[in-house]
Each structure stands twice: as C-alpha cells, then as structure tokens.
C-alpha cells in the first residue's frame, strides 16, 4: 500500500465514499418504494404476474454500462449526469424487487389472509397490517441482494466519468497504482457488509415473532 498517496487523497476518498453511498441508497429506497405497490398488484392479479415480472426481467438483461449510456437518449438528460446512474439502478432494483415482493406476498399463508378478511380487514388494511409484516423476511432478504449488487454496479459509472468509488479504479489504472484500486475494492466491500448487516438487523427488529433459530440467519456476505 502506498501510504503517501492514501494520506494526500483522504478527503477525495471520503467525498467518493459519500457519493457512492448516495448513488446506492437513493435507487435502493426508491426502487423498493415502487416495487411494493407493483408487487402487490402482480400478486393480486395473477394474469399480470407474468407481464410485470417478465418486463422487469428484460430490463435486468441490459448490461449496466449500456444502460447508463442509453438512458439520456430516452429521457433527455445530459449523458454524464449522475441522475442517469440513479435512474438505471432504480430500475434494476425495481425489476428485482417486484418479483421478490410478489413472491413474498404469495408465501404468506392463505389462512392468515383469510382470517384477516373474515375479521373485517379492508384490502388495504390486510396489505399493510397482515400481508406486508408477514412477508418482511422475504422482502428484506431480496433487498439485501439488491443493495449489495447496486454497490458493485455503481462503480461501472466511473467509465463514463461519474464520480464515486469506481473513480479510484480508473485513477489507479491510469496511474499504474495498485493502492487506489485496492482502497476502492475494500471500501466497496465494507459498505456492502455494513448495509447488509443493517438490513439484516432491521429484518430481525421487524419480526420479533419469528423463532430465534430462523432469525439468526447469516448475512448475505457471511
């Protein structure tokens, strides 16, 4: 490790880390927020399931670098605007989470939902008070996959000049220096572990009713 490089670039590295966090978190949160109603819809109307899951699957097919470059042409943003990265990642997250939400809701025991219906819960109340809480473990397990993938995908944007931890890779490559690259990789992995554990902890907090043995599942990265 080249400590001189490291110490002289500390504030830049911090800047990149913060940018990386925003570029990862905003799409993850927005993607999840959009996936909840869409996933519920796909679950309620079985005929839509194939359409919604299939269409979102097609978005997943498009390689991320190509997606970053193509978006401006479709939505009229500037080609190097970070907003392209945010939108592309939001779509990826949405594509992954729609299916997870629909499948998670489908896994809620039918008797539980019927009991709520028989007790007089309205459709929206059933969703927010019964189905969603019970589906939390499945949904958050999916979100852990999404967030960890997003952290890695964001780095690709360095190629088109969007500043985040990936910029350390391009910087290191052009300088022929290993230190920035390794620093970038380590920080990416660190963020991944921290966010993964945060969601895991959230999942356990939201589901105190699950048996401890089930809740003590390992992190995605463990």
């Amino acid at each position: 490790m080249n400590l001189t490089w490291l110490s002289s670039n500390l504030s830049w590295i911090l800047e990149l880390t913060l940018a990386h966090l925003w570029l990862t978190l905003i799409p993850t949160v927005v993607g999840l927020a959009l996936a909840l109603p869409l996933g519920w819809w796909a679950h309620q109307v079985p005929r839509l399931y194939g359409l919604i899951v299939g269409t979102s699957g097609l978005f997943y097919t498009i390689p991320s670098l190509a997606f970053f470059v193509l978006l401006p042409g479709v939505i009229g943003t500037r080609i190097l605007d970070p907003i392209n990265v945010v939108i592309a990642l939001t779509i990826y997250t949405l594509a992954l989470m729609v299916r997870v939400v629909a499948d998670g809701l489908a896994a809620v025991p039918r008797e539980t939902v019927e009991a709520a219906e028989a007790m007089g819960y309205r459709a929206f109340q059933r969703f927010t008070r019964v189905q969603l809480p019970v589906a939390v473990p499945v949904i958050l397990a999916g979100l852990r996959v999404a967030v960890v993938s997003n952290i890695s995908i964001v780095t690709m944007a360095a190629i088109i000049g969007v500043q985040q931890l990936g910029s350390l890779f391009t910087q290191g490559y052009s300088l022929g220096l290993m230190t920035p690259i390794l620093t970038g990789i380590i920080l990416c992995l660190l963020i991944a572990v921290v966010l993964d554990l945060l969601i895991l902890g959230l999942s356990r907090t939201l589901t105190p009713w699950r048996p401890a043995a089930v809740r003590s599942g390992k992190g995605v990265l463990a």
Binding site: M156, L168, F169, I181, I185
Partner: peptide
Amino acid sequence: LRALPTLGLLIV
C-alpha cells in the same frame, strides 16, 4: 463475488 466490484476486479 456479487459484492466484489467487477471493474475493480478486472483492473487488478
């Protein structure tokens, strides 16, 4: 491997 950034891996 999912968490490992592919661009960084490639360059290394």
